[in-house]
């Protein structure tokens, strides 16, 4: 129990660090941030506009004061308003975060459902036909960038074969089958990288587990092959796979931005990209903090799961 509390404490500290770094980025870039945000190409921005932006971002106040206000705002859940339309950042995130979460969840589920059985099977029949084909496919999947997979899926399935919609979004409550159809391609695109990584890790981990003494003990007990596999090989192979899953969620979250763009999925990436292009700083900060916080949360959950699977972690 103490371990869990300590792990949660670490996550909170990391969240604070992440927030601090995001805060500092604005002040660490050389030059006046307001001027920087307003400059496009080589043109010097209008001094009056710069002054106004400085005012709106609170850049005139002492740094420590700004930092305190920023943290207080975060603690209250106040992420400020958009520079473009004064729309509260938190409201925008609250509307779109569930859609992004749904996509991430669907992608992860697909990746786990494909990679764990495939990796285990490949390890058990190491060097066999399936192992060689699957390892080759995994290497290829790792090499294709996620937006290329997405674009090609649209090209082939939507444009050429016309079996799937090219993209878009319909709320689940409105039309469940249509919602799921629209979810399928982006979820598959997101799952591609993670499933390749998980396949490799599962395969390596099961192979490692197979050569362990306790697996020999399990066989020496006369357990059935199935029981040895499930309770001793896979059970022990799962912990490193879980760690890798947590670490790669970062890549997955970044990939979500690209996939949402390719498939017009109205998650967090639409306002994020719009805000980056329009240099709408508060909106970008709000979304970056949200997704980074999500990343920390996922890793916290992974670690707690890890402890549930491995009693040695709980003891230390």
């Amino acid at each position: 129990m103490l371990w869990v509390l300590r792990r949660i404490g670490i996550s909170v500290a990391l969240a604070w660090l992440v927030a601090t770094i995001v805060f500092m980025t604005l002040h660490m870039v050389p030059g006046d941030p307001a001027e920087l945000l307003l400059s496009t190409g080589g043109t010097m921005p209008d001094p009056a506009t710069v002054a106004e932006l400085r005012e709106r971002l609170g850049l005139e106040r002492p740094l420590l004061n700004q930092y305190g206000a920023f943290l207080m705002g975060l603690a209250r859940g106040d992420l400020g308003v958009s520079l473009i339309d004064e729309y509260p950042v938190l409201d925008e995130i609250a509307l779109r975060l569930p859609r992004t979460l749904e996509l991430i969840l669907a992608g992860t589920l697909i990746a786990v459902a494909v990679a764990l059985p495939a990796g285990t099977y490949a390890a058990l029949h190491r060097g066999g036909l399936f192992d060689r084909i699957a390892s080759g496919v995994a290497a290829l999947l790792l090499a294709v960038p996620v937006f290329v997979v997405g674009t090609l899926l649209v090209l082939v399935l939507a444009q050429m074969l016309r079996v799937m919609p090219a993209g878009g979004y319909v709320p689940f409550a409105e039309d469940p089958p249509r919602h799921l159809t629209l979810l399928a391609l982006p979820a598959i695109a997101i799952a591609k990288g993670l499933s390749a990584v998980l396949f490799r890790m599962t395969r390596a981990s099961v192979l490692d587990s197979l050569s362990r003494d306790y697996v020999r003990t399990a066989r020496a007990k006369g357990l059935t092959a199935r029981r040895v596999l499930v309770r001793h090989v896979v059970r022990n192979a799962l912990t490193p796979v879980l760690t890798v899953l947590g670490l790669h969620m970062g890549t997955l979250l970044g990939g979500t931005v690209l996939v949402e763009y390719v498939f017009n999925w109205p998650g967090l990436s639409t306002p994020l990209l719009r805000a980056v292009e329009a240099r709408d700083y508060p909106m970008v900060v709000g979304i970056v903090l949200t997704i980074s916080g999500l990343f920390l949360l996922i890793n916290l959950i992974m670690d707690l799961l890890y402890a549930a699977l491995d009693p040695r972690v709980r003891a230390s």
Binding site: T25, L37, L253, V276, R279, V285, V288, S292, L296
Partner: peptide, 14 residues
């Protein structure tokens, strides 16, 4: 602690 693409987008904004 940051997903790489997001850190990049933050800097691109600035």
């Amino acid at each position: 602690c940051f997903p790489p693409v997001l850190l990049a987008l933050l800097v691109v904004t600035l």
